[in-house]
């Protein structure tokens, strides 16, 4: 029957619309379901995953020593050339031997894609990824960083 189908159509259509409205109505009245994070306000409580790949850092211990021997395997592993290691030769005070060490560990954060291949490649675990993400600056040059601190040395025993 044409009329019967016609009415049935309208009834089912209205029902489907009502179902949708019921659902949105539920969320309109239940504010507990709101999932918005208020980002700059929750900075203090914001917890990032410890593995989050935000930038490359080189941890230094309390004696201002790091574990980088300047082997440049990270530089080779980097797919887009964001690492540049400038090496120098240190003279060991006790033995008098000349030893290769890093002068400057240049890190181009502006080129980095946070792939983590340098960390994987490092034989001495001298670098790691830090969970930071607020990198925006007004001058791009500020994103070129020197990771080893002034006057730092290779930790004894790291080869």
């Amino acid at each position: 029957m044409f009329i019967k189908d016609y009415i049935k159509d309208i009834a089912s259509a209205l029902k489907s619309l009502a179902t949708g409205m019921k659902m949105t109505g539920y969320y309109f009245t239940h504010h507990k379901e709101i999932i918005t994070e208020q980002y700059p306000d929750n900075r203090d409580t914001l917890v990032l995953a410890e593995r989050f790949k935000g930038e490359v850092v080189m941890p230094h211990d309390e004696n201002n020593e790091h574990a980088c021997t300047g082997c440049t395997s990270c530089e080779l592993a980097c797919p887009n050339g964001s690492i540049k290691i400038i090496t120098k030769f240190d003279v060991d005070a006790e033995t008098g031997k000349r030893k290769k060490a890093i002068d400057t560990w240049v890190y181009h954060l502006d080129l980095c894609t946070m792939c983590g291949l340098c960390v994987e490649a490092c034989p001495t675990n001298a670098i790691k990824m830090a969970p930071t993400f607020e990198h925006s600056v007004f001058d791009r040059n500020k994103l070129v960083k020197k990771l080893n601190e002034d006057g730092s040395k290779v930790r004894a025993g790291v080869e």
Partner: peptide, 24 residues
């Protein structure tokens, strides 16, 4: 994703031979 792979969109978690790190 972020917890295990360290990123949310472009993870680069798979390496030839397996995965980069173990699961969280």
């Amino acid at each position: 994703m972020e917890e295990t792979c360290g990123a949310r969109l472009t993870m680069n978690y798979y390496v030839p031979g397996g995965v980069m790190w173990d699961l969280h």
